[in-house]
Design a protein around this nucleic acid. Structure first.
Lengths: 121, 121
DNA sequence: TTATCATTTGAGCATCTGTTCAGGAGTTCG
DNA sequence: CGAACTCCTGAACAGATGCTCAAATGATAA
């Protein structure tokens, strides 16, 4: 089998001392909504292409990114703003160009793992 | 139609010994679209709550799942159908009840990693 | 059989989303 | 200065999305 042993839990909504590890696994409705927001941002073809281009290249300016997708530069800019506001990508200015990169290692792992799911799942 | 405009990004197409790993990292536009479809399905508060409930409990019937969210049982059923069709969850019938579970270990890892991103990212 | 339970399906609809268009802001250089 | 370049913002609109309602299916029990 695999890593995750099936935890058949039908727990009451109480927290005893022994439930530390279990409690860490519980995701509240609010957390789930925040997680959905993260997934929603990854869940668009344009944005996904931009993110995987960044995963591959490390850092790209907007012009480079517009060449990876088939929408206008304006659409790319809108997409990048959403990703930047959500903390999924980060940017730095260099002259008139602005370079984008994936914000943190979690995002990189997420994209990487998802690609594995697609290819070997 | 044939929208396969090339992934002709910066690096030249040289594949030496170490190039195999590099090649595996390249995600085509079509793959990115498939990945976006996966993320899109996770990117809804109702569906995310259902999935994290399944991650926690292992297996739940529809009635149990309706109690984890604040929408009608009909909405839950619609949500589950999307997830089932996409291969994100699997189901088995037991009497008149139908039990749902996460389809594979990749999905579990994806949900787990995302939760870590939210809490420690 | 009929009744009831558990879940699904289809339709209708208000809301949300991603796009393009038009214009604006910031930067470099002649 | 002004022109060229890179990127961003706001508005408007077609299309997608997720919800509820009404009805239907499949399974158990009386």
């Amino acid at each position: 089998m695999d890593v995750a042993t099936a935890p058949d839990i039908h727990p009451p909504m109480e927290f005893d001392e022994a439930g530390a590890e279990t409690r860490d696994r519980i995701v509240t409705a609010e957390e789930a909504t925040q997680l959905a927001e993260l997934f929603r941002l990854l869940g668009d073809p344009t944005r996904a292409q931009l993110l995987y281009a960044l995963l591959e290249a490390g850092e790209l300016c907007v012009y480079d990114l517009t060449e990876t997708v088939e929408v206008s530069d304006t659409a790319v800019s809108h997409a990048l703003r959403l990703l930047r506001t959500a903390g999924i990508v980060a940017s730095r200015r260099a002259g008139r160009m602005i370079y984008y990169r994936l914000a943190d290692v979690h995002v990189r792992m997420l994209l990487d793992l998802s690609r594995e799911h697609l290819r070997h799942g």
